[in-house]
């Protein structure tokens, strides 16, 4: 097995800072923005982004989590039931601008499921997607609005995002068999 280091802690921080600025620019400020991370690592990235955004603009931003497990399209097809994680949407999302945060964008199926969860909670003005890594291989017509880094991969490779909060260190690696 080979392990390839894609980006380090510094690069992650730079990428998030850039995404934060793109969010502010695209939305002309932070009014009506709600940030929802996809558990587990997406939630931590969402909180970091929130911290950067709040520091930059000096406003308070609601942040929550959206677990798409119960909306997955492969329930009952895998051997193991996926573990349920927390869904916590702290404010009404009607007419809000939702930014979904995930660590790695791959097939797009999780994002599809996450959007369905959000739709069941209300009618947002729009939904945007920010990811730290886009590794390609989309199976659904889903395109991120903000990308930390594009990483071309083969289907056999695994992209792992490691974060201080969970893994003790910030890095992104690609593992190949």
């Amino acid at each position: 097995m080979s392990i390839k280091n894609i980006i380090d802690a510094k690069a992650i921080e730079r990428a998030l800072t850039r995404i934060a600025h793109e969010i502010i620019e695209k939305n002309k400020g932070l009014e009506d923005i709600v940030i929802l991370g996809i558990p587990t690592r997406g939630v931590h990235i969402a909180k970091r982004l929130r911290d950067i955004l709040e520091a930059t603009e000096g406003v308070h931003l609601p942040v929550g989590s959206v677990d798409a497990t119960l909306y997955r399209d492969d329930i009952g097809m895998k051997q193991d039931q996926p573990m349920l994680k927390e869904t916590d949407i702290p404010v009404s999302i009607d007419n809000k601008k939702i930014i979904i945060i995930d660590d790695v964008l791959f097939t797009g199926r999780t994002i599809r499921a996450a959007m369905n969860v959000i739709m069941d909670f209300g009618r947002p003005a729009n939904i945007q997607l920010a990811v730290l890594i886009d590794r390609g291989h989309r199976e659904l017509p889903i395109r991120p609005d903000y990308v930390g880094k594009n990483v071309p991969t083969s289907m056999q490779e695994k992209v792992k995002v490691r974060l201080k909060e969970i893994d003790g260190a910030d890095e992104v690696v690609v593992e190949a068999e």
Binding site: D67, Y71, R72, E86, F121
Partner: peptide, 24 residues
């Protein structure tokens, strides 16, 4: 018990329904 703990939140939503077991 931990799975049930996660499900408590579903019953507090306005739309108290998830599509997980659709067609079952």
């Amino acid at each position: 018990l931990s799975t049930a703990g996660s499900f408590r939140e579903v019953s507090e939503r306005e739309i108290k329904k998830v599509p997980t077991l659709r067609g079952r």
